[in-house]
Design a protein around this nucleic acid. Structure first.
Lengths: 225, 225
DNA sequence: TCAAAAGTGTTCTTACTACACCCATGA
DNA sequence: TCATGGGTGTAGTAAGAACACTTTTGA
């Protein structure tokens, strides 16, 4: 009797950032079979003595060369259709990572190439990665409404307008700059003013902020479109 | 080189229902090692050629004897700490199931006993099941706000007051019956009147409704407490 | 006729929308 | 001085909170 059926477990990553005014995902070109030469989400096998979160963080670091501390990382969901990997039975635990604009990543161990692509142009990825990417984008869109997650796309110090651009690009909808400003500056513990200003966005100098300690957004950001 | 580390994968279930005016979870007494004789969430190994969702549905049916069609079932998240199962490396994909009041379940294959316990009294479960149960309850609470999920706890035909009781018991907060009534009867496609009434809740006869086709609740149910 | 629960109407307040308007900088 | 974006004020509107009040049954 087969008491404990044998599986492999991978951690795959939906890594999102905003680049050139577009919501982009990190994809890698596979250096090995199966799907050799095709584009896929970064990821890899969970090691025998490694926690799932730890595996995701390690893969992220390997594929992006990024210090994990500056990136938001959360579990997305798991995918385990019997034939999703032609080699053998593989269950993947997908993670969602959100990062500020990063340098173009270096190719990693298993990846022949790596690049950022606008999410709407990422199609025909290997395995079931199209569906995983779509779920990740959907999760990110939903969480902007009621969490301070949008700040994860911003550099450490950012202006209200930069934060607003995140919402507009992720949601694909315009927001009124004046109402947005009132809303986010009024939300408790969302933004901490640094005291300094910048003119990098043009026009009148804008205050610089850091992320505050808020974990939810009360009231939520209204999503018209 | 160990290319594909070996894991076992289980599907564990957080099955919630409302019984005797309490939010209750299904727990089973383990008939086998490890944790033999202790209480745990129902679940079991995913079979070699079985999809994760299918495995969860099968386990639910085996443990509750319930036709899966009448139960809401969704993936919760995965848990894979290296030492969570003393036998070997096991990753569990947890599912959340919500059901109307069910008969007390029969003991299943691996379970010596099975019963409903109020969620606040379910403590010291085997493995990491305390944390999984807590995550499941939290997910259910959150989803009542912006989805029609509360109807999953109701029988096929139900009154507005019965639906309100669901909210009050899951959230542990009182809601104004009059505002609640206006709210749910006003929401598009949430409730379909059957045309008949009942006096089973006492007082003036109440209209009976079925679930409508709505998948989200607009505007969301305000959660004061 | 009374208790109990269903269901409606009304007032008050909060928070979103839309937009007029002023402010502070670089070119 | 003018274009550009930062930021404030304010009127109108949608929706939640609180609660008075009427309706329809069983006992």
């Amino acid at each position: 009797m087969e008491r404990y059926p044998i599986f492999a477990v991978t951690a795959d990553l939906v890594v999102l950032t905003i680049r050139d005014d577009r919501l982009c995902a990190l994809v890698v070109r596979r250096g090995e079979a199966p799907f050799q030469g095709e584009w896929a989400l970064p990821g890899g096998f969970v090691r025998p003595d490694e926690d799932l979160d730890r595996a995701a963080a390690r893969e992220l670091e390997e594929e992006t060369g990024l210090a994990v501390g500056t990136v938001h990382l959360e579990q997305l969901r798991s995918y385990g259709a019997p034939a999703r990997d032609p080699r053998q039975r593989v269950v993947t635990v997908a993670y969602l990572a959100l990062a500020p604009d990063l340098p173009t990543p270096k190719a990693g161990t298993d990846a022949a190439d790596a690049r950022w692509v606008p999410v709407e142009r990422a199609r025909s990825l290997a395995f079931d990665h199209d569906a995983i990417l779509a779920d990740g984008v959907e999760r990110a869109r939903a969480k902007l409404e009621y969490t301070p997650l949008a700040t994860a796309f911003c550099a450490e110090e950012f202006t209200v307008a930069e934060l607003r651009r995140v919402y507009e690009l992720v949601w694909g909808a315009e927001l009124d700059p004046r109402n947005f400003h009132r809303k986010v500056t009024g939300a408790a513990n969302l933004l901490v003013p640094t005291g300094s200003t910048t003119t990098r966005d043009g026009g009148r100098p804008a205050q610089l902020f850091r992320r505050g300690t808020a974990t939810t957004l009360h009231p939520p950001m209204p999503r018209t479109a």
